[in-house]
């Protein structure tokens, strides 16, 4: 249970989603690093609950929220195909 974020092989800058070139150093190679937890910064509900989750490596990811976590709470991260899921 984790979410893969993309870390620049040259300068360790993390991004999500993946870019072609690292925004900082222009590096072209990425390694995937799993993150298991993050902090919910915002949430809204339409068909499902959707949130913005801050990962410890830096990127803020848009995730499906499968719990009643409120902004400020720590959540666990997972993925459903490419889609980030937080609980």
């Amino acid at each position: 249970m984790s979410l893969q974020v993309f870390v620049c092989a040259v300068c360790d800058r993390a991004v999500f989603p993946r870019r072609f070139l690292c925004p900082d150093c222009g590096g072209e190679e990425w390694r995937e690093e799993p993150v298991e937890k993050g902090v919910l910064e915002a949430a809204a509900e339409r068909e499902v609950r959707v949130g913005a989750v801050r990962t410890p490596l830096g990127p803020l990811v848009v995730a499906r929220i499968e719990s009643d976590a409120e902004p400020g709470a720590e959540v666990t991260l997972d993925q459903d195909g490419d889609v980030p899921v937080a609980r």
Binding site: A42, E45, R46, E47, V50, V62, A63, D82, P84
Partner: peptide, 25 residues
């Protein structure tokens, strides 16, 4: 492509939820 790959599967169902979060912030 990013919406199709990362958001449509949530499903966000369009930009309203994204701007709901921005408005709340």
């Amino acid at each position: 492509r990013t919406t199709a790959q990362y958001l449509a599967g949530i499903p966000t169902g369009g930009p309203n939820v994204l701007f709901a979060m921005l408005t709340a912030q």
